[in-house]
Amino acid sequence: MNKMSTKVSNPISEIFKYLAISILFMFIGFAIGMKFVPEYIAGLANIIVIILVIVMLVLSLISRKGKLPGSFSMNFVYLFTFIDGIAFYPILNMYIQDLGPTIVINILVSTIALFGILAFISSKKPAGHYLNLGLTLLISLFILFILTIINIFIGSQTISILLSIVGVIIFSGYVLFDISLIKHKENLGQLKEKNQLSIHVLNLYLDFINIFLDLLNIADNFR
């Protein structure tokens, strides 16, 4: 473990602080992408959507299966979210053009509200209350990944909507699970260093972004 890692006294509060900073880095990356990403790349938004969705699902699977280190520098989370924001520009630009900025902002606010409500519900439950969802969510996420790959070749709008609805449900479940896991680890005294919070910040960030992307896709397909 990094000996320079900062001690933490309130893990949940710190995790939400670092999550907010991570989302801010994502929007900074988006702003840079908007300024510097060439228009012809933005024109490939549909392809980039597919790539980013697959990448997000793969990262979610990898992190949930414990393939990522349990402790690493928060700077890696910030770097990832910053780069993700740059990659996010063509997609968000496409949705803004299709839906209009007002609807996109409303969906962002709705995502924040849903995320906040789920986090609040889980935080009020005893530590570990939703940990029993872990295996079901992991299997569901794996199936979602496979069906998403299949639908790339089928190209069904109906299936795309259904997968996005299922995606919102799965990652909403993961918000409940992740907060419950954080409380459980806090009770066990396993979250004493800043670097030990990084994986949880990353997981919550992935939950947030996947819910946001799925809600955007649902709205775009229903417009």
Rank of each mutant, 00 (worst) to 15 (best):
Y89D: 06
I103W: 05
I91T: 01
I83P: 00
V53C: 03
I83V: 15
M56P: 02
P69L: 10
I47H: 09
P101M: 13
K67N: 04
N75V: 10
G100Q: 10
K67L: 13
G70I: 08
I51V: 14
G66R: 01
I62P: 00
L61G: 09
I96C: 05
L57A: 04
I91F: 03
I105T: 13
Q97V: 11
V77E: 00
L61Y: 03
Q97P: 04
A45V: 01
L57P: 00
D84L: 15
L68Y: 11
D98W: 11
I91C: 03
Y95N: 11
N93A: 11
T102Y: 08
L61Q: 06
I103R: 08
G85C: 06
I54W: 10
I62S: 07
L68F: 13
I50Y: 02
N46V: 09
A87P: 05
P90R: 03
I50D: 01
P69C: 11
I54H: 06
I107V: 11
S71H: 08
L68T: 09
N106G: 12
I48H: 05
S73Y: 04
V55P: 00
P69W: 12
R64E: 15
L92C: 05
L59M: 14
I86R: 06
L59H: 04
I48T: 08
G70A: 10
L99H: 12
L59I: 10
F82S: 03
R64S: 15
F82M: 08
I48C: 07
V77H: 01
I48E: 08
M94K: 09
L57W: 04
R64W: 11
S73I: 06
P101Q: 11
L52D: 01
S63P: 00
I91D: 01
L108N: 02
G66V: 14
L57E: 01
I62K: 09
I54G: 03
P90N: 04
P90H: 02
L52W: 04
I91S: 02
G66W: 04
S73G: 06
F82Q: 02
T102V: 14
G100H: 12
Y89C: 08
F72E: 07
I91E: 01
A45E: 03
S63T: 11
L108Q: 02
Y89V: 08
S71Q: 14
I83R: 02
V53I: 13
L108W: 05
I103D: 02
F88I: 09
Y78S: 07
Y95E: 11
N75P: 01
A87K: 00
L92P: 06
K67C: 07
I86W: 06
I54N: 07
Q97K: 12
G85H: 09
K65M: 12
S60Y: 07
Y89I: 11
D98N: 11
N106D: 13
F82Y: 05
L79F: 15
G66S: 09
